[in-house]
Design a protein around this nucleic acid. Sequence first.
RNA 1: GGGCCGGUAGCUCAGUCGGUUAGAGCAGGGGACUCAUAAUCCCUUGGUCGCGGGUUCGAAUCCUGCCCGGCCUACCA
Length: 699
Amino acid sequence: MTIRKILVTAALPYANGPIHIGHLVEYIQTDIWVRFQRLRGNRCIYICADDTHGTAITIRARKEGRPEEELIAQVQAEHERDFAGFQVSFDNYGSTNSPENRELCHEIWEAIDKAGLVKTKNVDQLYDTVANTFLADRFVRGTCPHCGATNQPGDNCSACGATYSPIELLNPISILSDSQPEIRSAPHLFIELAQLREFLVEYTQKGEHLQKEIANYLKGHFLGDENSAEGAKPLKDWDVSRPAPYFGFEIPGHPGHYWYVWFDAPIGYIASTKQWCDRNGERLEDWWKNPDVEIHHFLGKDITYFHTLFWPGMLKTAGFSLPHKIHIHGFLTVNGAKMSKSTGTFVKAETFLKHLDPAALRYFYASKLTPRVDDLDLSVEEFINKFNADLVGKVVNLASRTAKFVQETGLSASYPDDGGLFAHAAAAGKEIAQAYEDCDFARATRLICEIADRANPFVDSEQPWTLKKDPAQAQRLQDVCTISLNLFRQLAIYLAPILPDLAERAGRLLNDPLISWDQSQTPLVGTPVAKFEHMLKRIEVKDFENMIEESAREATEAALESEGTPDRAGEGTAVAFQDSAEALQNEPLAEECTIEDFTKVDLRVARIVKAEHVPEAKKLLRLTVSLGGDNTRTVFAGIKAAYDPEALVGRLVIVVANLKPRAMKFGLSEGMVCAAGGGGAEVFLLSPDSGAVPGQRVL
RNA sequence: GGGCCGGUAGCUCAGUCGGUUAGAGCAGGGGACUCAUAAUCCCUUGGUCGCGGGUUCGAAUCCUGCCCGGCCUACCA
């Protein structure tokens, strides 16, 4: 078999925050694949780096009163520590703020420029004159130009859903300085992606490099289809520069202009490879300009766009190898819900390691990962159960129940008749390997567990503990344990990409380090057996609960710290009731208004007299509310995800009674029902205390 | 609205090219064992394969319509 040369990357984590269990899906997935390749004897390097540029870094550095360089150095050290804690085996962990990256950015830019893909256009953008910076969309809030809702984000309105540019916002406010930004025009550099269209269609639609659903998505949303009724879609120019001040690399020939973080971030893959090459006496072109090398990128679905259109375009133009395969995964949910800081499911890598074995997370993710882009749910019960039942109860149990019987004698000199158990498991290795190769780790773990399920009954039927009592059965005892330990060893090899620690311990127990997949095909005989030591500790529910509690506590403390709340012990404050500051942080207070402003809004108590689904609408319920007497009106409310219509009938709610009626697709909406919450299923209707009656005004 | 994925036992999921009586693990029930981390082993309960139609000698599997869920994406406002 020929030895493949494989370069693997995982997406570069942003140097703006700590690694959490959501990130780890990707780094563990990638690490398993890398370790599998190495175990198979392929030459495989795993490259990563911190992504360090952009406005968010500058903002955090300013807030902490220190230079960006100091912040990113500290964060990188934390990232590397966390990854090491989960046995993620990078060959090089670099930084996009490195001399290697600067040089490569220059090289690639020059090639793109030379190819005639760069053009300049003026862009109007909001500028914060207090913080002296241009403002990205998410750093601006203001009044929606369409519906007049206040305190809306810079790119779309959460009330009416309209999309717009931040410069269209009425009364825009910078969240950096609370000042009113002004519109300034500045030249930006663009890459004309449309010129690469033919190549991009070919590359993305070939069916070799991308998962089918991803190819499909690109076709539907960016490329279009020449043969369809709508025809091909135009590819938009890509804005790759940002005017000063910006933490990043200045663009040669354009003083005061910097590459947008998404230009230099993927180049960081190459730059980090360069560092590895320099350290190991290798040549970069042997890895990035060599058709014999397979380049594999692993990344999350949120950054699909950058990696499947811009990045291949950049590589192609600059004469680097194209990714052989781009593996895209979904997001992590915990107990079926998005990770949340306030409920403690937003678990940092560091916190996890204080309470639980990283092997458990590696194994759980492996058991859930498929080649598809689906999201992955961590259910606590399943997490604990899988680890305890599969690994401790079945796999490790094989060793822990037989090793001590052969501690004196070692393994038998020749492999005894085991009724075909070993041969069967050896044969399964081919299928297991294919599952790993295909990134179908769920299948791999399933196949491995099937083998484990056959092994324990063997030990039971042979009863080594009975054999031990009869000196005449000494040989049989040694044989039975030799079989059991060999089956265990085989499982440890198959699991080695997922559980490197277990493989190491298994190697130590049998005095034969596990370093190659092929070792699963031949039984081990005649070696001494070391004293058995615990290999995996069972997880208690309490461990998990403690971790969640600590995470929730950390989130509260972090929120308090950034709020700088002085009155910690004050009675009746949010602190005393342990309320998180998250909600307020997510949506800062609107600008001040007068009582006259407020009274313009006529809030009334109303009773829901009828509530029904709107079949064509995904989010809306049609409510009929009564303000008393025969004064009823129809209101559409986006609460379908949170409330059953039946449960609403009879309830008192608060409505905006003098809101200008609005014609919606499904009918006229004559008001608005007041609710709190973050949207989706997290919507909480307001109710008056008992005693209030429909029609009463709320003031 | 469009695209994609899914719906099989209480839960998580297998189920190959359409082929016998639809499987596993976990959970539940009963028993056994005592080497092993309250681990293990045996037996067992449990299914209208989302629903309807079609193709076929034969459908969980293929086709089609619908329902439900998830993800992506848009429109309306």
